[in-house]
Design a binder for these strands. Structure first.
Lengths: 205, 205
DNA sequence: TTAATATGTGAATTAAAATTCACATAAAGA
DNA sequence: TCTTTATGTGAATTTTAATTCACATATTAA
């Protein structure tokens, strides 16, 4: 028989396998049987570690939250320059989405949009937390005067997501034909033009 | 017995009922039984007009395509001013999404993302067609010099969507708490700042 | 008026997964 | 070693919709 592992380890394995499956087949295509196969177990074994499929989905969402928020920590540690932070966060975010197609699929899924109100609220909270973190960076830019004073940090943070989202959708829909990375670069130019104080010279880099 | 209607009329009724149901319950919650109830028929009657559920979903997607592209026609007819066209299109688009929550849900659905490649390609084509139309407007702005000459029309059109998408998601996730309309106004300011030639004065309105 | 046909009905049938349960066995401590 | 307990297994069972089909009846046109 296969080795028996502690439930904490199994939970991790199962959550990661599930996210990986969602990346390749979407949440609809996610079955307990599929997860079990991926982990090397039999379907019913999953129920030793999760009450039901819903709990597995919640675990996927937790994983996504972690990874998303981790990026903010990274850029905050890397540089103190506001614009540079935003630029790097943009790149990390895009990298995350590229590596992990399941993220978008899960966030937009029916399971979230029409699942329990608690789950939806939790995902909403994840997005809002991320936005608050971005807004925090922006706010510092406002204080330092490197961002147009007449803008609100909250609006800018949503606009930041605007550089990523539609492009990511297109990338998904087009099976990768749409060039996500190079779009991000050009979107950054527009974004920068929108948030810099009126008579600022943009230095490339 | 209920009145018998021609299949063309029924198809329309069914597609609209389906889109309406998707708006309230998502594509996952869309059942043949639910559609039948909405139209006032019995489940099996749906099969007189559609081969199977897949065909019904395709009908929903066609409806969405129509409504989305119709907005471009409207603004093109309404005004010749490039910036005004974009601004009005933004408003119409947001109105469309507000009135019809099913649109986002359907486009991001598993049925599209993981359905038949043909379907996915068709939805991709819808989005690309919409973007091309926006890019066409932008291109004219470039010629007229009301838009920064160093930008590419295609990038600007995706950025246009960027004003809408993340906000729409937030609106959905937050159960309408996020103020979609007022965000659009502020996003427009940033967008405008990003696409206007460097030393342009923004006149309100 | 009467065929012919398209549309509608209700009762099965099918199918695909999730979930449960009785049983087996590895792991860990006394 | 011996016991206990958490994990793992395989065979049912349940659930939920989609789908099919034989039958009924509006509608239309000849």
């Amino acid at each position: 028989m296969i080795q028996k592992l502690g439930t904490e380890i199994r939970k991790q394995q199962i959550a990661q396998a599930a996210l990986s499956l969602v990346s390749s087949q979407g949440l609809k295509g996610l079955s307990i049987a599929g997860i079990a196969r991926e982990v090397g177990l039999v379907p019913s074994a999953i129920y030793r570690h999760f009450k039901n499929k819903e709990e597995v989905i919640d675990a996927i969402l937790d994983l996504i939250r972690e990874r998303l928020l981790a990026n903010v920590e990274v850029v905050t540690a890397e540089t103190g320059d506001v614009l540079e932070r935003l630029r790097r966060l943009l790149r990390l975010h895009i990298q995350l989405i590229r590596d992990n197609q399941g993220i978008l699929r899960a966030v937009f899924s029916e399971e979230v949009m029409n699942g329990s109100p608690e789950r939806k609220a939790r995902v909403c909270n994840t997005v809002e937390t991320y936005l608050r973190a971005v807004a925090e960076i922006v706010r510092r830019g406002l204080e330092e005067g490197v961002i147009r004073a007449d803008l609100e940090a909250d609006s800018v943070s949503v606009a930041f997501l605007g550089m990523i989202q539609p492009a990511a959708i297109l990338w998904h829909l087009s099976e990768g034909r749409f060039d996500l990375t190079s779009h991000a670069e050009r979107a950054w130019e527009i974004f920068l033009g929108g948030i810099l104080p009126k008579n600022t010279t943009i230095e490339p880099g």
